[in-house]
Structure formats: C-alpha cells, structure tokens
Nucleic acid binder design. Structure first.
Lengths: 141, 141
DNA sequence: CTGATATACTTAGGACCCTAAGTAAATAGG
DNA sequence: CCTATTTACTTAGGGTCCTAAGTATATCAG
C-alpha cells in the first residue's frame, strides 16, 4: 500500500474540507454545491450553463440542478437572449452578489485552519503535485 | 485566491481519480464505493459494520447501503453470532476474495498514471501535507 | 433486577455528481 | 435551401455520502 494511499488521502481531505465548510455555508442557506458556482459568478457574471460547467469542472446535468435551485433561492437569474435562443445566461442577483462578503471570509477561515502549521514551501509543492496529477489523469480519455 | 485554490485542487483530484478508476472497476461489477470496503476486508475479514465505517471513514448509513449491495452481488456475507446479537459481522465470500487479484493491479495502474513524472520526494511531501490537513480539520468538531 | 444509558444497526430523506439518452436550436455541406 | 451534424440544455436514473430519527440489544447504576 505505498502509492495507493495517496488516492485515499486525497479523498479523505476532500471529505474533511466539505464537512468543515458545510456548517458555515448552511447558516446562509448556501449548500456546498452552490458555493462552487457563486465563486465563479462573482468573478465573471453572465456565463452560460455550459461555460459554468467547464469552469466548475463538472458535467452539465450537475449544473442544471444546482443553478435551478439557486434560481429558486433568488441568487441568480436565467435568461435567454434574442440573438441566441439556445444559450441560457446566468446572472447574479443583488442577493447573490451580497453573499460574497459573508461567505468568502468563511472559506478563508477553513483554509487557514486546514493549512495551519504547514510550511508554505510544502503547501506550494503540494499544489504543484496536485496539478500534475490532474494533468496526468486528464490525458487518458 | 491564494490558499483557497488548494481546496478546489484537492476536490478536482478526487474527481479525476474516481473517474479514472470507475471504468476499470465497473468491468468487474464493482462500484467505487465497494472498492473501499473490499480493500479493508482483504486486510482484515469479519469486521462489524461499525468497524468498517470507522476504517472507511464514513458514517454508518453509508456502510449499510454499500454492504447490503455487496451482499446481493455475492461478495460478502452478513452474520450474527449468538454471544452478541447486536453486531453484524461481515465476511468475504470466495468471490469477494477473488476480486483482489483483478482489482489491485487496476488501482496500481491508475496510481502509476496519476503520479507519473512526479519526483518521489514531492509525492512524499504531498502525502505529509494531506495528512496534516486531515489532522487540522479533525480537531474542530 | 430494573430503569437509564450507550451501542449497533436501520430507515427516511436530501445533496451532489455522474452517465446515457432526449429535445431544440444553430451551423455546415451538398 | 435543406439535410446532417454539432451544440446547449434537459430528463431519467443511479451511486455515494450525509444528517436525523427509530429500533433493538447490551451494559451500567441504584
């Protein structure tokens, strides 16, 4: 069980991060799934669902469900434009934009806790290794 | 978005690993969830569902669902002992034990691909950082 | 010994993500 | 032009994991 462990470690860290963030987000009626899309939209508003899926790194059906639920919560609107009736453009509402001020500090706190006491140099190496792993796994399709 | 990215990186690596392993496992009628429990039982047979949950790092209801489905596939048996009718002991069948020879090489291949070209030293640092993160996040409950 | 507590499993229901297959609109080729 | 392909979104269904609440058994305390 040498290299094998790293896959399980990665999985366990993901679960730990999700668990840690979940409680705080829930207080603002934001699920972990919504968080991913909010982050993207705060950076760049008015993306299509396809673009959102690409940015989030998930498949389209996952985005459909999430965005629909965010629409019902009043965080985003979905709109078609006359020049292209196929695309659906997702825009933040004022309510959705306002969440940024509350949620970003929360995520920063969790990251701060997660990385406490770990040398920056090692965190950077980890970041590079993780990116290399994604690259390696993406190739084979 | 400095430290913040590491959370998303970890999540993305998990997804990439799951995707990569999924196809191979599916050929042997093993889902990704079953894989976790099989690995544990190959090491130590006859654990209770509670012990399996602890080992796998998941909650009990998740284990109930998975083990029941593995029982139906004929990979494990569930048995009570007269001296304690509360515990349910899970044992591998011959079929479940036989999967090891097919599945382990498959997982090793995925790990090999994922870590290709990454210096062992850096992988080890990553392993340590990930374990430290789990430790950091476990504390706050 | 018997009531309170702890333990092990189960049920119910929800969130997230996936694959496969369907629909509708846009685009490209003959 | 009009058919064929591609693109964007949707629907259907399944797997994994969670929390909360329920049931049955075991254990502990008075």
């Amino acid at each position: 069980m040498p290299d094998d462990r790293i896959a399980h470690l990665v999985k366990d860290v993901t679960r730990a991060l999700v668990r840690a963030l979940h409680a705080g987000l829930a207080e603002h009626s934001v699920s972990f799934g919504h968080w991913t899309y909010l982050r993207i939209l705060w950076e760049r508003d008015g993306l299509t669902q396809r673009e959102l899926s690409d940015e989030a790194g998930v498949m389209e059906p996952s985005t459909v469900t999430a965005i629909r639920s965010m629409e019902q919560l009043g965080y985003v609107t979905r709109a078609q434009l006359p020049e292209n009736r196929k695309n659906i453009y997702v825009h933040l509402t004022a309510k959705g934009r306002a969440l940024k001020a509350k949620l970003v500090p929360l995520a920063e706190e969790v990251n701060h806790i997660a990385l406490a006491g770990i040398p920056v140099r090692e965190v950077n190496i980890t970041r590079e290794v993780l990116m290399a792993m994604i690259e390696n796994l993406a190739g084979r399709d």
